[in-house]
């Protein structure tokens, strides 16, 4: 157990079994009351434990945003990079050691908007990376602006008349670009989420898990969902579990069903496999200068 630092929040608390997976002195976190990121982070830790991957081989990479802060709280090799660039950073980090498990934890804005090009290409090349993408339907950290996952009619600070653009369907996007493991859960599906996280972590190749998270502060209160619990209840009432469904049929609309489940699980050579294959092919080529 890592020695705890003096900290008013945990000074009198009993040591929690997961304490050693959190960086000493980093709690309290910055996340708001009612936010799902705390419980999702707990599930990430539990899934890592259950996967039995050597913690030494785990690296957490994130971009910018509320979810992006997760890297800094988790007590593994962790890299808090720039907005949108978590995936290419993770690819460079990952291919230097085939035993390394690189996990990208970041938000929908980071992964699918500013980093969208990297998402589609990382999926295409089946990079050996597990992505936990927390979708809270908008930009939380910057104060609640509309995003590429906002549904039509959603009220945000930059969509004061309601959002007018179609949202991305992230599982469909990842699957169509070549991701070899794709699933979606709401923050409420803790048990299934954990099972899926374990599968994604143990999957060889590009695994993409979307987690619909509650953001009461900048999403809920503008959309008649005043607290975290209300958002989760809303998720619960709309959730339909449909494993194996074509993710194209899982688009999320305002008040429509939220289809969750595991949509894709296939095996293909990974980027690392293919790069290592080149080593043999290159051996007999005379270098030309």
């Amino acid at each position: 157990m890592i020695k705890k630092e003096s900290n008013s929040m945990i000074l009198d608390a009993e040591a929690h079994p997961l304490d050693s997976y959190l960086r000493p002195g980093r709690i309290p976190h910055i996340w708001c009351s009612g936010c799902s990121l705390g419980s999702i982070t707990t599930v990430v830790i539990e899934a890592i434990i259950e996967s039995e991957i050597d913690p030494k081989n785990i690296a957490i990479v994130s971009g910018i945003g509320c979810t992006g802060r997760a890297a800094g709280y988790l007590n593994f090799d962790s890299f808090h990079t720039t907005h949108g660039r978590a995936l290419p950073f993770a690819i460079g980090l990952g291919i230097t050691d085939p035993n390394r498990k690189v996990i990208v934890i970041s938000g929908d804005g980071d992964i699918a908007s500013i980093g969208g090009n990297h998402l589609i290409h990382a999926a295409r090349r089946n990079a050996d990376i597990t992505v936990f993408c927390v979708n809270n339907f908008q930009y939380g950290m910057t104060g609640g602006q509309v995003g590429p996952t906002s549904y039509i009619g959603q009220y945000q600070t930059t969509s004061p008349y309601g959002n007018i653009e179609e949202p991305f369907n992230l599982p469909a996007l990842a699957a169509s670009c070549g991701a070899t493991y794709v699933s979606r859960w709401t923050a409420l599906d803790v048990r299934r989420m954990k099972e899926s996280f374990v599968e994604a972590l143990l999957h060889k190749g590009f695994s993409f898990v979307e987690i619909l998270g509650a953001c009461p502060t900048t999403y809920g209160r503008r959309n008649q969902l005043r607290d975290g619990l209300t958002i989760l209840e809303n998720f619960k009432n709309r959730t339909i579990l449909q494993h194996g469904i074509d993710p194209m049929k899982a688009q999320i609309q305002k008040d429509g069903p939220i289809i969750v489940g595991k949509f894709v699980e296939i095996q293909k050579p990974t980027l690392t496999d293919n790069l290592l294959r080149l080593h043999k092919m290159a051996k007999n080529v005379k270098p030309e200068l």
Binding site: F79, A90, I91, G92, T96, H118
Partner: peptide, 17 residues
């Protein structure tokens, strides 16, 4: 890579590897 943004990010990642 798909662009220079990704290229340099991957270079930083590999260096940390």
């Amino acid at each position: 890579f798909e662009d220079e943004l990704a290229s340099i990010a991957s270079v930083l990642g590999a260096s940390w590897g």
